[in-house]
Design a protein around this nucleic acid. Structure first.
Length: 521
DNA sequence: GCCGCAGACTCCATGGAGTA
DNA sequence: TACTCCATGGAGTCTGCGGC
């Protein structure tokens, strides 16, 4: 039987690179020097001592354990197998035992095809050539133009591969039970990309609880895949609320399992309840009481018809979305017909996947973001545009072409109060890419009609400032900033300097005029 | 070679943002 | 209260430097 350790240990390098780029505090340690064996890891935690590095001969922690002899002697171990450098120099026997984090790769046995009867009584064939532990690619849907409307063709989904992976884990547990060995489930951390073994029995109660919870979740996923049903995280939680204690615990483990398998959450037939709303195009809101239509999961879409749409507006808050839907702005806009979308705050996966599909189907339609002029608004926009660190392993969820419509400093600064142009305006004027609305604000002595004034601003809280600083740090760590990200940096600096923020609702009275002006520009 | 202990790291709880 | 996202910090684990 092939062992789970070998294939689960394969981390897509892109994840590591992405997490390094996206994390403001990421640090990639240099390889350790001994024996040329490189131990590279990516940390998402703040580096409290950046001066420490391998060159100075300091510690390099890794979940790949040191040999038992070096561990006992507390000396540096290069982890070279079968005999590490320290042991070979001292002529010692070297052994890598079964302490926590130990990879079981060395004990794996090549599998032959086996048949399993799963819990639903269905026989699953596990092939060694396309083994149960090969990296599965997430199910992908491809937009195809038919009669002027994009419809989606189903790509290769791999439920059988996931079922086989889960059954492989269960097989290993059964084997361990029969041999009276410690039971283990390998799990890969989304933060570090490292694999750890969740064991039973464990030194800690939390470890035993995690093992049991993982087993329960794997069982739910297996049942869902075998029966072809979709389960929600909430469903899984209610399977055993006493065990899970909170849904957040289930959320985290489900995403960790998806990351460990190298697939998206969808491939596990696990979904979160729909959160986003859409209005316009072929998403008819008649009879929907002006609430918009819940964003469907991409796998259940027959197609989208946005061919007559000129723009797509992604709105942070539902209240603004509803007022625009109620006024049928998506039909009556001066910029032509468009689409309104909201995910009600930080976007869920379904909304991000939907937008990604729309962008790949209709790349010529600009997608604009309307978010608060506060750190959370900007963080929400970046989640839409670049995704989130914790869901790095999910594919097709980013919107690199997302354009920031507002609210910006140029919408909140009154030129009569601030006679000198703002740093952003100066920058924009110098670079010659200033939007018309900004040019008006900067050059005119007349109060622009669709502009907020200082009375509508709120003071940043300490949390706001902390978030803004973290966001700035994240942007500064990004080496290849585009023009929009440079502008974002300036806006954040300005926000901190003024110690002010503004919400979209402040535009409510003049929202339509403001949008017409900005969308046409 | 032994081993105290500082630092790196993971896990997990908590709390904040948005919303219904 | 439910549900999505995020960040932070305490506690425990592991590594291995460096003093003896």
């Amino acid at each position: 039987m092939e062992h789970i350790g070998s294939s689960w240990a394969t981390t897509p390098s892109s994840h590591r690179v992405l997490s390094t780029i996206s994390s403001p505090t990421s640090s990639t340690r240099a390889p350790t020097e001994e024996g040329g064996h490189s131990v590279q890891r990516t940390s998402v935690l703040p580096s409290q001592d950046s001066a420490r590095n391998s060159d100075s001969g300091t510690a390099s922690y890794t979940s790949d354990p040191v040999c038992e002899q070096c561990h006992a002697k507390r000396v540096r171990c290069d982890r070279v197998k079968p005999c590490c450098g320290a042991c070979s120099r001292r002529g010692r026997d070297c052994s890598f035992g079964r302490r926590q984090g130990q990879s079981t790769q060395e004990t794996s046995v090549q599998s032959t095809p086996v048949s399993l009867n799963n819990s639903a009584g269905i026989t699953t064939q596990i092939s060694s050539s396309n083994g149960p532990f090969t990296q599965a690619t997430p199910a992908e849907r491809h937009p195809v133009l038919q009669d002027g409307i994009y419809v989606f063709e189903e790509g290769d989904s791999q439920p059988a591969a996931i079922i086989a992976k889960i059954e492989g884990i269960l097989e290993d547990i059964v084997d361990a039970l029969s041999l009276n060995r410690v039971l283990m489930i390998p799990l890969r951390s989304r933060q570090s990309g490292n694999e750890v073994m969740i064991r039973f029995p464990s030194d800690r109660i939390a470890g035993a609880k995690k093992f049991t919870a993982l087993l329960q979740i794997l069982h739910c996923i297996h049942e869902a895949l075998v029966s072809g049903r979709i389960v929600t995280k909430r469903n899984i939680y209610y399977h055993n609320p006493d065990l899970f204690c909170s849904q957040a615990y289930v959320d985290q483990l489900v995403d960790d399992i998806a990351f460990t398998f190298g697939v998206g959450r969808d491939a596990l037939n696990v979904r979160a309840a729909s959160k986003g709303l859409v209005a316009g195009g072929n998403f008819d809101i008649i009879g929907q009481d002006h609430h918009g239509v819940p964003i469907p999961h991409t796998s259940s879409l027959d197609g989208v018809d946005f061919h007559s749409s000129r723009w797509i507006l992604v709105i942070e808050k539902e209240a603004t979305f509803r007022s625009l839907v109620a006024s049928r702005y998506f039909e009556l806009s001066a910029a032509g017909p468009g689409i309104l979308i909201t995910a009600k705050g930080y976007p869920d996966l379904a909304t991000r996947q939907f937008l990604h599909l729309v962008q790949s189907s209709y790349p010529h339609i600009p997608i604009h973001a309307l978010v608060d002029f506060d750190p959370d608004g900007l963080a929400i926009m970046r989640t839409y545009k670049h995704g989130s660190r914790s869901l790095d392993h999910e594919e097709n969820v980013t919107l690199p072409g997302l354009y920031w419509l507002g609210v910006k400093s140029s919408d909140v600064l009154d030129p009569q109060r601030h006679l000198a142009a703002s740093p952003l305006q100066q920058l924009s004027q110098q670079s010659g890419n200033m939007p018309p609305s900004c040019q008006l604000s900067a050059s005119s002595n007349v109060h622009p009609p669709n502009q907020l004034n200082m009375e509508t601003l709120c003071t940043l809280t300490s949390n706001d400032r902390k978030k803004a600083v973290n966001l700035l740090r994240s942007l500064n760590n990004q080496h290849d900033q585009d023009t929009e990200e440079m502008m974002l940096t300036r806006e954040l600096q300005l926000m901190l300097m003024l110690n002010k923020k503004a919400e979209i609702q402040a535009l409510d009275d003049s929202m339509t005029a403001w949008l017409n002006e900005h969308l046409c520009a």
